[in-house]
């Protein structure tokens, strides 16, 4: 793997019973880039993220991240390697404050166990204080400073999306997986979020891999785009190349007569998705 490739997905196949969610998908993510994975509903984008974060184990293929194999590695170990993920449908603890929701992302960076925390040993106190300071900075970066002590359940949807993104960044990742970061946001919030993602890349040097449905946003934000359809990669290139690709246009706009190349080899798979 070359120096500037941080992630190489190679021939990854995921099946659920008879359904093939991912069918030999391969792509590479360049270090420091914003890379988008797009595709219609059911194309396998979220399955792809679940493989990358260790939640699903593919039946075939490999995922190399910074020289390590991620397939077969437990999710919490992948997190410790510097891969963080923001969930599409907000996986936050609603009755906990913004502070606590962000601090949990420091889990792999901190040590304090039950005994040290329960007895409030000096090591645990110092660690907590140090990391709280840093996480407060991150909250400020996402304009969440004045929401620091507020339970997440009381925040607006847009704010909770920001908490989700802030939590991923609070893990100090090298690779950030964002699952539809602007889904459900209004136009104004979406573009503010896009600017924050770009700044995270520019100022923190994080590589960003994102799933997104909002096409104008992908075109503006991404350096490179991978297009999935029915679990297969149908295109890969710059936003301009991809948006001119006839197969991509067909996947998005639909076509009565599937071209031979685009037709899934397995007829039952098609039926499951349509």
């Amino acid at each position: 793997m070359s120096e500037d490739t941080i992630l190489r997905v190679d021939g990854v196949t995921v099946r659920f019973g008879g359904v093939t969610a991912l069918d030999g998908v391969s792509f590479e993510v360049a270090r420091g880039s914003v890379h988008a994975v797009i595709g219609p509903n059911g194309a396998g984008k979220s399955s792809c993220f679940n493989v990358l974060s260790g939640v699903y184990r593919p039946v075939a293929g490999s995922v190399r991240y910074a020289g390590r194999e991620l397939v077969g590695t437990a999710p919490h170990r992948i997190a410790a390697l510097g891969v963080a993920r923001a969930f599409q449908n907000l996986a936050l603890a609603g009755d906990q404050s913004v502070a606590e929701n962000l601090m949990v992302a420091r889990h792999h960076l901190t040590r304090a166990g039950f005994v040290a925390t329960g007895l409030r040993l000096r090591s645990a106190r110092n660690e907590e204080r140090r990391h709280r300071e840093r996480v407060r900075e991150i909250a400020g970066f996402f304009e969440l400073g004045d929401r620091w002590d507020v339970p997440v359940g009381l925040l607006s949807y847009g704010e909770r999306k920001r908490v989700e993104l802030a939590r991923a960044l609070a893990a100090e990742p090298e690779l950030l997986l964002l699952d539809e970061p602007v889904a459900g946001m209004n136009h104004h919030e979406s573009w503010a979020m896009a600017r924050q993602i770009r700044r995270a890349r520019d100022e923190l040097g994080v590589t960003v891999l994102l799933i997104e449905h909002d096409m104008p946003m992908v075109m503006a934000l991404a350096d490179r785009v991978t297009v999935l359809d029915f679990g297969r990669r149908i295109a890969d290139g710059t936003p301009a190349e991809v948006s001119a690709d006839p197969e991509v246009i067909r996947a998005y706009l639909g076509s009565d007569e599937p071209a031979s190349g685009a037709a899934p080899s397995d007829g039952t798979t098609t039926a499951e998705h349509v």
Partner: peptide
Amino acid sequence: GRPGRALVLMRENETAAGVVGVPV
């Protein structure tokens, strides 16, 4: 503290707790 935050996230969303770095 740290263990409590991990336990609460584990209750709310076990998958997320793992992905965030908690050995579930």
